[in-house]
Design a protein around this nucleic acid. Sequence first.
DNA 1: TGTATCGTACGAAAAACATCGTACCTTTGG
DNA 2: CCAAAGGTACGATGTTTTTCGTACGATACA
Lengths: 129, 129
Amino acid sequence: MKSNQTENNLPEPTKAELEILQVLWEFGPSTVRFVNDKLNGQREVNYTSTLKQMQILTEKGILKRDESQMKHIYIPVEAEEKTKVQLLDRFVNTLYKGSASQLMMQLLGNEKTSKQEIEEIKRLLDSMD
Amino acid sequence: MKSNQTENNLPEPTKAELEILQVLWEFGPSTVRFVNDKLNGQREVNYTSTLKQMQILTEKGILKRDESQMKHIYIPVEAEEKTKVQLLDRFVNTLYKGSASQLMMQLLGNEKTSKQEIEEIKRLLDSMD
DNA sequence: TGTATCGTACGAAAAACATCGTACCTTTGG
DNA sequence: CCAAAGGTACGATGTTTTTCGTACGATACA
């Protein structure tokens, strides 16, 4: 029954950084222009702000980039799954003292979790043995 | 359709604020001194830092306080459950596009989620019908 | 070939968060 | 009554995160 510290390689992405990661996860390796356009679909951001963020992300080692063209292509270093698992782990540890079942109870008790979702989860569990 | 006219949207607590909330959740309404002592069990914090944070939390409406005594007693406005549900909800939406079962899959795939936890979850689900 | 357009680099301002020092008030005990 | 101990208030400062202006190089094309 351990809920140890996450053996954390990479620094935790900030909120703004996460937004960018999600675009890259959804659409694959992209230019700053592309990411910025997507972000602007949600809220107003200046191009250079996004550029800066992505440069920082790269400094931190969260993104890498292909500079062979003038329009640099940015790519997440870690797979979406791995990063999300890390974030989830931290979340569970912080809010639920590492107890996944505790978290589950809240998900199941949440009205926003649909019957369909619950059925999905059940099937998942049954298929695990 | 849910009956909820004022979908209570309190500002998201910051990291430092969450630490304080957790103490209050665990030990109930407390003085700054008490909370600060608890925090100092984990890391060094100056008394006035904790005081300030708790004052800010109060300004934000996340805590309220009983000022009838010199030693003010601080109390979370919302129940632990409610706040956690809110945070969880935000988490699921942000990282899993609202899909609880997606999140589940990761929890179950996570080695840190013990067999025991999984059994716990199964029992939970079965007892739900 | 000149100029408008689109790109990167990067410092610095702005905003959000966190910490602390100091002033000052109340209570307590000798 | 006075000093020590312990409380609150709050501005100032430090840090991190976010945003943006400006400089300047490459590209496109009229």
